[in-house]
């Protein structure tokens, strides 16, 4: 035992190598390997008559993504992910700001508890609870009736695309539940970013003549941007890939996750499933590249 610790002490590089080897093998082989396999699969195609996978390089599967019915799915998912991200950021910012700037001691603990606690319970339980809340017989409909706002709810549900028979089978319902489920993933990074902004920075802005709104725009938001981007990576990519929430709550219009699930399972079209699965990865890569270009990480 002593000889071992002495050897490790004398050879720090060996220590680091030993510490890093297991996670690197995991990341390299299991994780990146799986991604590579996915990438390879997406360049194969399926023989629609025999159902056999044709293992020759082709872009035909990717071309299929642009067929109207498939492209609709991609568009719908991306728009939903963007809206969910935007709404999460808008809701998360004041909460994160309060937690970073004002909450101390007991209140801070309460904040962490409040943000994290929803993550302790099963995701499925939460989604099904929302199904009850959003149902036609649910508390939202009841509340709208009590507030004499039934006309508003019905008017909204009568709208095309976002509406439906009830909130629980509308795109609006899907949106609400997505925002609810991913919100903690936005609050925490934004809070961490805001916590790193020294109070003197905001005072300096006011001292130089900036009104609070100008300080928000020119100092606080740019400095919080790395956190917002980090949070949006979660909300955006989690929405892009999710297939359970739109399956339980929402209209029959499908999302990328559901398309992957169906192509891979029922249809047995692994190449198309792989091509669908590549879409969120490419979108995220493009998104991060654009965020970097825009200077979102300048304050890091």
């Amino acid at each position: 035992m002593r000889a071992l610790s002495d050897t490790l002490w004398r050879r720090p590089r060996l220590t680091i190598a030993l510490l890093l080897a297991p996670p690197l093998i995991w990341l390299g082989v299991v994780y990146l390997g799986a991604l590579a396999a996915l990438l390879v699969q997406s360049f194969f195609s399926i023989d629609h008559f025999t159902g056999q996978i044709n293992r020759t390089f082709t872009l035909a599967t990717y071309a299929e993504l642009f067929r109207a019915s498939n492209f609709d799915i991609i568009l719908r998912t991306v728009v939903m992910a963007a809206l969910v991200t935007l709404a999460s950021a808008v809701i998360a910012f004041p909460i994160a700001y309060y937690a970073a700037r004002y909450a101390r001691g007991r209140w801070k603990a309460l904040f962490y508890l409040g943000v994290m606690m929803p993550l302790w319970s099963s995701y499925l339980v939460k989604v099904y609870s929302w199904k009850l809340i959003l149902a036609r017989e649910g508390i939202l409909t009841w509340g709208a009736a009590k507030l004499h706002l039934t006309w508003l709810l019905d008017g909204w549900l009568a709208l095309p695309v976002v509406g439906g028979n009830s909130l629980s089978v509308s795109a609006t319902g899907t949106f609400i539940v997505f925002v609810y489920v991913w919100l903690p993933y936005m609050i925490l990074p934004v809070q961490a970013a805001l916590e790193r902004v020294p109070p003197s920075m905001l005072e300096a802005s006011g001292d130089l003549g900036a009104k609070p709104f100008q300080t928000l725009r020119h100092v606080l938001l740019p400095l919080a941007m790395p956190g917002v981007v980090a949070g949006s990576i979660f909300t955006f990519s989690l929405t892009l890939g999710d297939y359970i929430i739109p399956g339980i709550i929402g209209s029959s219009r499908r999302f990328i996750g559901q398309a992957v699930y169906e192509q891979q399972g029922v249809a047995g079209n692994t190449p198309l499933a792989a091509a669908f699965a590549m879409v969120p990865i490419l979108i995220m890569a493009a998104y991060l590249w654009a965020a970097k270009k825009k200077g979102a990480f300048d304050a890091l």
């Binding site: 020294p198 003197s200 920075m201 005072e203 300096a204 802005s205 001292d207 100092v219 740019p222 400095l223 200077g295 300048d298 304050a299």
Partner: peptide, 11 residues
Amino acid sequence: TVFQDYALFPH
């Protein structure tokens, strides 16, 4: 004001 920590805007 000239702040003790200078409070320069890092971005």
